[in-house]
C-alpha cells in the first residue's frame, strides 16, 4: 500500500503530470497530455497493445525480402497487403472463412474481408468499409458490363450509411505478373464506379481459373485504396 502511493506520486509528478495507476488508464486528460507530449518530442507510442497506432500505419513493414520458401514454411495462409495512402505494406494471415468470405488479420489488429477476392469489409482503419453487396460486381467481372454496387459505411453519428454506386467493368488487356518467384498469366479488369459523393476505380489481375492474384480496391473516402497479392 505504501509502495503504491509512493509510486503513484512519482509517476504523477516526475513524469510531467501524466496519469498512472489502473484507474487512470482511460483518463482523457492523460490521453490528451500524452498526445501532446508525443507530438512535441516526435516520440512514437511503442505500446503495441493499445492498437492506437493504426491511424498512422495499419501494417508493419516487411522486415525482409519475401521468399517462396518462407511462405511455404508458414502453417497459415498469407496475403500481402498495402494501404496505399499510408504507404504501408505488410503480411496478413488467414483468420477465418464464412462461406465465400475470408477474413484476414494483421498482427497490429486490423482485419480485411474478401469475398472471392472482392473487398467486402475492413475493421480498424478509422473509416472502415462495414459491408458490401458485391454479387453483381462478381458476375460483371466475369463477362464485363454494368452493375450496381452497394457499400455500407459508419458515419459520424455511428449510423450505417448505405451508398450505391453505378459501375462498369471492362477488360483492358492481358499481363503476366510475378509474385514472389511465381508468374501468372492474368487478364486485367478495371471496374469504374461512381456514386453520389465519390467515385473510384478498382483493378483486378485474374487468371484463367477465375482466381484474382493481385488487386487494387477502394476501401473508403477516409482511407483510400488497398492493394493485395495472393501468396
Amino acid at each position: 500500500m505504501r509502495m503504491t502511493w509512493i509510486t503513484g506520486f512519482r509517476c504523477a509528478v516526475l513524469a510531467g503530470l501524466t496519469a498512472c495507476g489502473p484507474l487512470q488508464q482511460d483518463n482523457p486528460n492523460a490521453t490528451a497530455l500524452q498526445g501532446a507530449f508525443s507530438g512535441l518530442t516526435g516520440a512514437v507510442t511503442a505500446d503495441g497493445a493499445n492498437g492506437t497506432a493504426v491511424g498512422d500505419s495499419a501494417l508493419s513493414g516487411e522486415s525482409q525480402a519475401l521468399t517462396r520458401s518462407f511462405i511455404e514454411a508458414q502453417d497459415v495462409d498469407l496475403l500481402r497487403l498495402s494501404i496505399i495512402s499510408q504507404d504501408a505494406t505488410g503480411l496478413v494471415f488467414f483468420g477465418g472463412a464464412n462461406g465465400s468470405k475470408v477474413t484476414w488479420l494483421s498482427l497490429e489488429g486490423v482485419s480485411i474481408v474478401f469475398d472471392d477476392g472482392l473487398l467486402v469489409g475492413t475493421r480498424g482503419f478509422g473509416d472502415d468499409l462495414m459491408g458490401g453487396d458485391v454479387a453483381a460486381a462478381k458476375a460483371s467481372l466475369q463477362r464485363g458490363g454494368t452493375h450496381l454496387r452497394t457499400l455500407d459505411f459508419l458515419n459520424g453519428l455511428s449510423q450505417i450509411e448505405r451508398r450505391t454506386y453505378q459501375c462498369v467493368s471492362i477488360q483492358t488487356g492481358n499481363e503476366n505478373i510475378t509474385i514472389v518467384e511465381r508468374t501468372y498469366a492474368t487478364t486485367v479488369i478495371e471496374e469504374t464506379c461512381s456514386g453520389e459523393n465519390e467515385s473510384f476505380k478498382n483493378t483486378y489481375w485474374r487468371d484463367g481459373n477465375g482466381v484474382i492474384w493481385q488487386s487494387r480496391q477502394w476501401i473508403s473516402s477516409g482511407i483510400g485504396y488497398l492493394g493485395y497479392q495472393r501468396l
Binding site: G51, G55, G95, N98, L105, S111, R123, G126, G156
Partner: peptide, 11 residues
C-alpha cells in the same frame, strides 16, 4: 474516424 481506431473484432 467515424468507425473508430479500435482493433478488429474476432471473426
Amino acid at each position: 474516424n467515424p468507425s473508430g481506431l479500435e482493433t478488429a473484432p474476432i471473426p
